[in-house]
Design a binder for these strands. Structure first.
Lengths: 145, 145
DNA sequence: AAAATAAAAGATAAAAAAGTCTTTTATTAT
DNA sequence: ATAATAAAAGACTTTTTTATCTTTTATTTT
């Protein structure tokens, strides 16, 4: 459904929202450990999101990643689009290049509905909305150890 | 959402259901042209489905691919499972290995619903059910040329 | 039986995705 | 100023997916 890049990216962003609060920042090492991802890989992903202005960072001692208010309100859909493009939101279920209402594949209508629900769900969820439940341990960003 | 392998596989199976009727068979060349796929690639995919007994074939002159009654009634979900496994039906949206009701990722509940709808839709659709509409030109298996 | 046909099988190649390693740049603390 | 810290950038490797090419096997027609 989502690429590894995107899965890690979403987990990392949610993790940053949880851990970089009150002007604090969170380092790449801790992020990688906190979401069970390869350190250098998630670094590259966050660089990309940084370039797009979706996550903030500061170098040097006490540096790390954090989110501005906009970033905390940012939807999961924004991250998915930034990392995977909008194939998931618009693509044809059978891979036809020009599948449309006027030139539909056999499952065009059904898939449209599903894509819309995925879209609605991802547009509706905010990066910052899971912080409390993660704190209290009713949600998780890594495998059970 | 689906791999290229799976997209081509579904299109090919639906195409075979449409074209190999009344004891006739359809050749790999025509299938490839009919669904806009690389010939040798779709050949390999159909070999795999053949090994699993999902599609039938005969070698030699007048040979080709066809479906028995079971194959024509086979659901799209069966093809997806045969080619892509059941990640799509069971996997975690954020890629957590042990995501579950008891150890949920932030979007566990939402994604479960969506996966179930995808499952229902793919289980409900039969390979052979699109034949008429393909014949009459209200559905398509390849790009507008 | 021989030639032609068409899928099966297997080897190889190209492209994309995932992952790793090294060097550079910016910032802070001493 | 210097050393230490941490992200940015870029090069590189591995794995997986996608795609292609060649040889073999089965079947049919002549």
């Amino acid at each position: 459904m989502l690429s590894k890049t995107c899965e890690y990216g979403l987990r990392a962003m949610i993790f940053i929202a949880q851990h970089a609060r009150d002007g604090k920042r969170i380092g790449i090492r801790e992020i990688a450990v906190g979401i069970d991802s390869p350190e250098h890989f998630i670094a590259k992903i966050l660089q990309e999101l940084g370039r797009k202005g979706i996550v903030q960072s500061i170098k040097g001692p006490n540096g790390g990643f954090y989110l501005d208010e906009k970033g905390r309100q940012c939807s999961l859909a924004t991250i998915v689009r930034a990392l995977d493009g909008d194939e998931l939101f618009n693509g044809c279920g059978l891979g036809l290049p020009h599948c449309s209402h006027l030139h539909p594949c056999p499952i065009h209508g059904e898939f449209k509905k599903i894509r819309e629900e995925i879209g609605t769900m991802l547009e509706g969820a905010r990066i910052g909305e899971f912080t409390e439940k993660l704190d209290e341990g009713s949600l998780f960003l890594k495998r059970k150890k």
